[in-house]
Design a protein around this nucleic acid. Sequence first.
DNA 1: GGCGCACTATTTTTT
DNA 2: ATAGTGCGCC
Length: 512
Amino acid sequence: MPSLSEIPHDVNEAQWRAITHQGSHLLIVAGPGTGKTHTLTHRIIRFAEQLKNSQRILAITFTNKAAREMSERLSGCLSVVNAGVMVDTFHSFCLKFLRQFIRHANLPVDFRVAIPEEIEVLAKELWPDKSVKERKDTVEQISRWKSTSFEQPLPENLRVYNELLRAKGLLDFDDLLLESLNLLTKISQVREQIRNTYRFIFVDEYQDMNPAQHALLKIFVDDGALLTAIGDPNQAIYSFRGADVRFFESFSADFPGAVIMELSENYRSATNLLKASGQVIAKNKRFFIPALNPKILTEGRLTIYEAPTDKAEAEYVVHQLEKLIGGTSMFSIDSGRVANYEEPNASFNDIVILYRLNSQRRVLEEALGRSGIPYRVSGDKPFYQIVLPLKDDPHEENNQKVSLMTLHAAKGLEFPVVFIIGCEENLIPLNLKGFSFDAEEERRLFYVGMTRAKEKLYLIRARRRYLYGQSYENLPSPFLSDIEEELKAYEEIQKKAPKKKFPQEKQMDLFG
DNA sequence: GGCGCACTATTTTTT
DNA sequence: ATAGTGCGCC
């Protein structure tokens, strides 16, 4: 047993227990800002030091970005690289696995993974009479079936789709997981080799697991590997693409003997912000988790503001940005303010503006454009384009920019200053007519947004908003009233000459 | 095959 | 609002 006196300076007691735990599967419940990656990395390194020859550690992430970041953290420790820690996404690992054992697989030997355009072409061949939307829906359904319902009998449209895909020598992304599952289930020789290689498996963001990934993981573990999973069920926001947060609840049943630990010291958010986000997430029925303990003991500031319109909302954001940036830039020229040591100026990189819908971005971009504030929009480029070389503008690197992204895209990031715009009924939580509505997941999404903030959080709304060509009058988001008044600082509404010209008011028939 | 007009649907997103 | 599809016409 490692004694507490061994604890490194950069690790707390709960983290140390999680890092050093041995002899059973382990689920680490790690809320926002509790040192999730830090703890996982330490634990991997510790296990890597104990590896015998030919044994491997497999650390699985969901995104390439997460895999890259994990690799970078680990490669600081050379011995780990030598010991053979494999850090990969589920999909990328399965691709390598299938290539390695291709002679055992019932697949075209030179198969490729289809890019989305190839899937579109294929769908057009199969269903020429369907509209574009219907084809898109069908392909989406197929992907969902493959990641969630793959044990059910094969639907007819899926059979023809698979046949044509294979005839072209292609696999889709979901096939990477399913074909790997197939191979492991059917060929004991392959399974044996895998069993002898991967003794320790680590999975990050466990709340994002889909049933196909879970099935794969179960095979590894049934073959004798020891599993460490880490994540936060309160940050599960991807159920719409097949992720199932139930695997968090069934962990002990799925992996007998498992130990569950919690990290609850928060090193990210100022006390007011941590309290506020805690009060919001506490209203969910699922996943009660005791409040996180603040370790950053500044108060922080939670600002609430209601603008008359979405345009005014954007102008307010711009105005606040100018105030935040303060003396260090051109924006201070007219104010003549001197930087205040109690309120150090923020730089553009410190700031993110979050929204529920991409369509909210336009008004924001216009206001930012008018003011000349530099910004970047993230999370809207397809993954396969990322590999293409970007224009190498040497200034790009140093350029300070405000970030704009959806609440979804913000997961895993942190910023000193966070704006969440559109904090209105029907928008947060999003309730669009004709679309399914999951109040608990929407609350988790809002929680993810709130918990990105380290020092300042602005929860902003517009009384009147244009969406899809219609004007709506919306009440505040019900989530706002879950935060106690003591924590909120209300900003005065900026006085402006009332605008008379609103286009025809229509019924709010878009919201369900 | 290409142009232009009318119609329509509209989340969140990774691999 | 607006982007993108689908259709008719040359």
